[in-house]
Amino acid sequence: MSENKAAQGTSVIILTFLLAMILTILPMPEWAGYIRPEWVGLVLVYWCMALPTRVNVGVGWVAGIIVDVLNGSLLGQHAMAYAVIAYVTVKLHKQIRIYPLWQQALSIFTLIALSQLLIAWIRGIVGDAPNSWLYWLPSLTSAVIWPWLYLLLRDVRRKFRVS
């Protein structure tokens, strides 16, 4: 019985990551491409916070590799960034869990900005540094969208009893 439940939970987690990846490559007008939140990063932070024993650096790394292939970017750059934010989230999950939503959004801003900073460094090293301030916009939009995403994912987790 309990094993069955665990299997069901896994499929829900995979499904949320899949949806986040679909949102990541969904075609949008050019201006909307710049404000696209880091969907995969957000979903990863949520699961790391809610279930740190099941979703942590390993899952973040694998999700990052897939995002790299989806984006056609250097293999490993998102993997590295996501592993780092997964680690930080898991370390701080007890604090973040009890913050009010707006404070959680602030932590999300910091985490996503951290992942973007890592990616910007890597791109700078290979000579492909982002040349516009618009590059940092997704961390802001991610923080703005966080409260709604958090409530949605929490309801999903409770409904399907993912644990």
Partner: peptide, 19 residues
């Protein structure tokens, strides 16, 4: 977690360098 992170970071750096 820390050990795993270190391992994964090293492997992503390796991957990126090779890629």
């Amino acid at each position: 977690a820390g050990i795993r992170l270190a391992f994964l970071l090293a492997s992503s750096i390796g991957l990126m360098a090779v890629d």
